[in-house]
Amino acid sequence: MVGIVGYGAYIPRCRIKVEEIAKVWGADAPSYKRGLGLQEKSVPQPDQDTITMSVEATKNALKRGPHVDPKKIGAIYIGSESHPYAVKPSGTTVAEAIGATPDIHCADFEFACKAGTEGMFVVYGLVKAALIEYGLGIGADTSQGAPGDALEYSAAAGAASFIFGNDKVLAECNETFSFMTDTPDFWRREQEFYPRHGGRFTGQPAYFKHITGCAEGLMKKAGTEPKDFDYVIFHQPNGKFPQRVGKMLGFTPEQIEPGLLCPLLGNTYSGSSPMGLTSTLDISKPGDKIMLVSYGSGAGSDGFIFTVTERINEVRDLALNTRYMLDNNKRYIDYGTYAKYRGKILTAE
């Protein structure tokens, strides 16, 4: 049996409300909140980035996988569009921090919001092929939206980390499926600080087409249908798209709700659907069937089907759960502080 043997998330404590951003740009906060299905978002402080959040999420994953000796982790893949370096891996820092070096394979992935599930997909394959004993798949981002752009209301920070292995599995991976096309709905060119996007073009031909294509392919491959699942997680660029795509596919709001963090978290990009999974695992019971479908612009989706095992009852409470981190210990900041923290202010060198 191959699957998840440890999982953990990390959410920075700072938040900014939609109203605070809207006030600066003269935008109508209620219509943004309605349009995006979003109240507030997480904000990283200057000392938090993809690497630090990945380390903390991984420490939580190791708490839930206490049998995993970091020295036996054979691969670390971090998916992010905000790796702190353009050239120099994030993964090696995480590997050093958890004591997994030097007998390990590292690679940093980038595929817009899909990069996190990519890491999970690859380590799952390596463990299944018995090339490694354990592997870490991490999705983490401290994403930036251009000031005043719709993305500024949602681009958030967070991380989720999963240890894959084949002993003491807490969620068995039953099936995977991926769906890719070349669709330029959102991008960031080399040297550019903020991304650009195709507005409504990011919807039907991008998000909806790839998620439905992936979910339908996955269910067909596994011989399942929506009612066979206890929970489903879709990528969460805003609070509304996951419910809409769920409805298109025949899922109920109740199947989606436990993993839907976006209304209070924002879009953590590569961390988005993986954090939906950590949040869902937190409330799952042995035997529960979970489907996860990510989406990354450019464009593609990775799909997974997991079955939760008895092990979940032993490890669930060994680390803070995701909703707890989302709901507690929050600090609201104003736009000026947010702009300072996010490097949006032109300062003297």
Binding site: D47, Q48, K59, P84
Partner: peptide, 10 residues
């Protein structure tokens, strides 16, 4: 907690 302590300029 693991954090970034400082960066050498930009």
């Amino acid at each position: 907690e693991f954090r970034k302590i400082q960066s050498d300029g930009k």
